[in-house]
Each structure stands twice: as C-alpha cells, then as structure tokens.
C-alpha cells in the first residue's frame, strides 16, 4: 500500500463534544458526511469546508444548554 495524505482539519475537543459532532455527522445525508477519520476519543479528522458549520452547530447546542438568568 502506498502512503496516503489526506487534507482536512483536525478537531480537538472533549469526549461528549466529540459524540455530539459524530451524531451531527450521522444525521447528514450521505453526500455531506464530513468525518474523514475517527482518530480517538478526543480527536476527529474532518473536511475543511465543514468546520464553520460544525462550530456554529456546537455553539447553538451550548447556547440551548445554558440558562441565562434574567437580569
């Protein structure tokens, strides 16, 4: 087998966050799957063009998870 080099973006995050991103990936239609390699518990290798989307989704997710007390 010859050496392969894949361009992309490595994402480093905590374990639950990785699971959330994986779920996001599985919900995508086949043509838009973005996870290229599942490296380990805290690392994912994904397509570069999807990074902004991932970040936005993660932010929305965290936003929905926090309670903002009314001032």
């Amino acid at each position: 087998m010859s050496i392969s080099a894949i361009k992309g973006v490595i994402i480093e995050c905590d374990i639950p966050m990785k699971q959330y991103i994986l779920r996001m990936n599985s919900e995508m239609p086949n043509s838009q799957k973005f996870v290229l390699r599942d490296l380990d518990d805290t690392h994912l290798f994904v397509q570069a063009n999807m990074v902004t989307l991932i970040k936005r989704k993660v932010e929305e997710f965290m936003e929905s998870n926090t309670y903002e007390k009314p001032m």
């Binding site: 894949i6 995050c13 966050m17 970040k55 965290m62």
Partner: peptide
C-alpha cells in the same frame, strides 16, 4: 474555556507509512 471547547486546525493526515 467553554467557548473554546472545539479546537480546529488545518492539517494533513498521513496513513499507511510502509
């Protein structure tokens, strides 16, 4: 820290080194 839970870096992944 909460904001930076996801850290992304442009990279190249090498596999199958003989």
């Amino acid at each position: 820290q909460d904001r930076n839970r996801v850290k992304a870096t442009s990279a190249v992944c090498y596999e199958n080194l003989p």
